[in-house]
Simulated scan of single mutants.
Amino acid sequence: MLSAFLLLGYLCGSVPFGVLLTRWLRGVDVRDSGSGNIGATNVTRVAGKKLGAVVLLLDAVKGAVPVGLALHWMPGDSLAHALVGLSAVLGHVYPVWLKLKGGKGVATALGVLCVLVPTAALAGAVIYGLVVAKWRVSSVGSLSAAVVAIVTAFLTAHSRDYVLLTAGLFVLMLWTHRSNLQRLARRTEHRL
């Protein structure tokens, strides 16, 4: 049963809502503009705040749904829940439909954490909002939120597997944000 949920998580995560919605509603490919990323931040830059918010919500939902189903069908198996969450985020980062070239995984990770460690998800979202409001740099907000989510998960999670997942997602975000980190070091990072 776990393998079916891992596949479901990956396939849900791999749905490229940013690409699909900007193409359908604006007639543009989000990968050709702004930062070239398929996620909500670049959709906001390319197609506006409303569409960016829709993509943020949908990218979070595609992480939450498979994890919620795993919780329902495999109650008590925290490792399975964590692995399904990781597979959803990996689906967003490496979607089969886009030749494994996806997004940063932040919104999908948020959806996963909303189900497994809601306090950590909330704390991360609040920090993201505060950091972006102050400095207008989404990558700084995302990485700051991930650090706060790890600490909060450590303090509040019901399972060590959920804490390890939160830490693993942070490591994955460091990888997906490596070009952002280089631009931050050169002080050339994109602003909202």
Rank of each mutant, 00 (worst) to 15 (best):
A145I: 05
G68H: 00
K62N: 06
G48V: 03
C114Y: 10
F17R: 08
L57P: 04
L130A: 09
L2G: 07
P66H: 08
D32L: 15
P118L: 11
V84D: 11
G124S: 05
A123T: 07
D32P: 08
L71S: 07
V140W: 06
L113D: 01
S78N: 11
L51V: 05
G63S: 04
T41E: 07
A153D: 04
A4E: 14
A185I: 13
A167M: 08
W97Y: 13
T156Q: 02
W135L: 07
S3Y: 09
G34Y: 00
V106Y: 00
H158Y: 13
I38M: 02
T166Y: 02
M173H: 09
D32Y: 06
F5M: 13
Y10D: 09
P66Q: 04
V151D: 06
L6S: 08
L184I: 13
A80D: 05
D59S: 04
R136N: 08
C12Q: 12
R183D: 15
W73T: 14
L71Y: 13
Y10G: 11
V15Y: 04
R186P: 12
Y94G: 09
Y128H: 03
A60P: 00
R160K: 09
A133P: 04
A82M: 15
L11I: 11
F17P: 09
L155Y: 11
D161Y: 12
L143C: 02
A153V: 10
A145P: 07
H72P: 11
L56D: 00
A40V: 04
R136I: 13
L25N: 15
T176E: 09
P16K: 08
S138E: 05
A64R: 01
C12W: 15
Y162T: 14
N42L: 01
G39A: 03
